[in-house]
């Protein structure tokens, strides 16, 4: 079967999202909805564009897309309310 080959290696936009980088890290962030006030600091600093403040009913808090989170811990480090904790993934627990 013939593959499609774009002229001159031109690429379509936003194709990286096919790559789920969520299995890269050892840790993952857990958001404490009580402490989170939806200030979006974590959202602004996340290098993997995978934490987003969402409004759920009356509440507003950060939601992590674990499909892409590499577990760098930046969100937890910048959170002004200590609302995010990094936890070790189960498979790395001895």
């Amino acid at each position: 079967m013939k593959i499609k080959l774009n002229l001159g290696a031109i690429s379509e936009p936003l194709q990286s999202e096919k790559l789920k980088t969520g299995d890269w890290g050892t840790h993952y962030p857990v958001v404490d909805k009580e402490k989170c006030n939806g200030c979006k600091t974590c959202e602004q600093y996340c290098p993997d564009l995978c934490i987003e403040v969402k409004e759920v009913g009356e509440e507003k808090y950060a939601v992590v897309d674990y499909n892409y989170c590499k577990g760098c811990g930046i969100c937890a480090s910048v959170c002004p309310f200590e609302a995010i904790k990094m936890e070790l993934k189960d498979i790395f627990k001895v």
């Binding site: 080959l5 001159g8 290696a9 031109i10 690429s11 379509e12 936009p13």
Partner: peptide, 12 residues
């Protein structure tokens, strides 16, 4: 918004 000058690994 296309991307020009992408790099290509050995498979392509």
């Amino acid at each position: 918004p296309l991307a020009f000058g992408c790099y290509a690994p050995p498979h392509i």
